[in-house]
């Protein structure tokens, strides 16, 4: 209803904690997870508070926790702290070269302030079907590392992380610590394509592709699409179809058609089911074309 609005000024009637270590965050959660929400950049959470979709009594600001910030490469794997901002991630050393689609998905964020404030963890935990980094992380076979107050840690492949719009497998007492991306193989190329309504917008449809080009064929390929189903999703049919094939006009068209058959978009105020279905195919086709070009010769890595 119009009275709950995303531009009104809300009176801050919640308790805010600003722990400076992961341990302290977990301790806070241990005491009362109910009614508590983690606050990263707040670019999703504050909107939801204003719209009264959530009314937390306590916020835990996690942007001062060193364990959750920054990027590192360990055993060839890229580890990104969950509270790393979208902009920091986009500019991370080697990210653009090795994980091009991910950097492009960060670039595609609607505006600079949101890129500076918003975090990768927030983007994933908010679990919007249109979250821009999700398809790219699917494509790179990413996984998320979760910590809970009992001290347990688990790693969940991103494929299994999202359950529905706004819903994930994460428990209330868990914190996302990091996102892990496996090393990319020689001959990898990737790309991300976003279709919005105006330049500063969330996705109407998005697509990310990562493929490995070997002997001028697709030796391995992962395709994911956003905003076309209840969660970001893999386009398995197209992936299987492309394995072992060359990318040319015909295979691109066939892959696009396969994507159109796999997606299950809805009609809403931003677009129609028909358009999203059609354009999901186009977006994948364009991303495949770009990834194929980039993978040429396998000079990356």
């Amino acid at each position: 209803m119009y009275q709950t609005t995303n531009t009104r000024i809300i009176v801050p009637e919640f308790d805010v904690r600003q722990p400076t270590s992961l341990e302290a965050v977990l301790r806070e959660l241990e005491h009362n997870a109910k009614g508590t929400r983690l606050l990263a950049g707040g670019t999703d959470l504050l909107v939801q508070i204003k719209l009264e979709r959530t009314q937390p009594a306590r916020l835990i600001d996690i942007t001062r926790v060193p364990e959750l910030m920054g990027m590192a490469v360990k055993d060839g794997m890229l580890i990104v702290g969950a509270a790393t901002s979208i902009r920091t991630l986009a500019n991370g050393v080697g990210v653009r070269e090795r994980y091009t689609a991910l950097a492009e998905s960060c670039d595609a964020f609607s505006t600079v302030p949101v890129m500076i404030m918003g975090t990768i963890g927030g983007n994933l935990c908010n679990a919007s079907p249109a979250a821009d980094t999700a398809p790219a992380l699917f494509a790179f076979d990413g996984a998320v590392e979760l910590a809970s107050c009992e001290g347990s840690r688990r790693t969940v492949p991103l494929d299994e992380f999202f359950v529905g719009p706004g819903r994930t497998v994460m428990r209330e007492d868990e914190v996302m610590v990091a996102v892990r991306l496996p090393k990319t193989a020689a001959g990898t190329g990737s790309a991300f394509v976003k279709i919005g309504r105006v330049a500063a917008d969330i996705s109407k449809v998005s697509a990310a592709v990562k493929l490995v080009r070997k002997d001028d064929r697709v030796s391995e390929c992962r395709i994911a699409v956003g905003a076309v189903a209840a969660t970001p999703m893999r386009a398995y049919t197209a992936e299987q179809y492309l394995a072992g094939r060359r990318i040319d006009a015909k295979t691109l068209a066939d892959a696009a058609r396969a994507v159109e058959e796999d997606v299950k978009p809805i009609t809403d105020v931003r677009s129609t089911k028909e358009y999203r279905t059609h354009v999901a195919g186009v977006a994948v086709k364009d991303a495949l074309g770009a990834a194929w070009q980039r993978a040429r010769g396998g000079e990356r890595q």
Partner: peptide, 26 residues
């Protein structure tokens, strides 16, 4: 891009995230 959409008189584009004015980027 701009359209105020009313469905049975009810406003379906109640904020600037549904009602799209061009920005400098457009």
């Amino acid at each position: 891009s701009e359209e105020m959409i009313y469905k049975e008189g009810r406003l379906m584009t109640p904020s600037l995230s549904e009602y799209l004015i061009p920005t400098a980027m457009d």
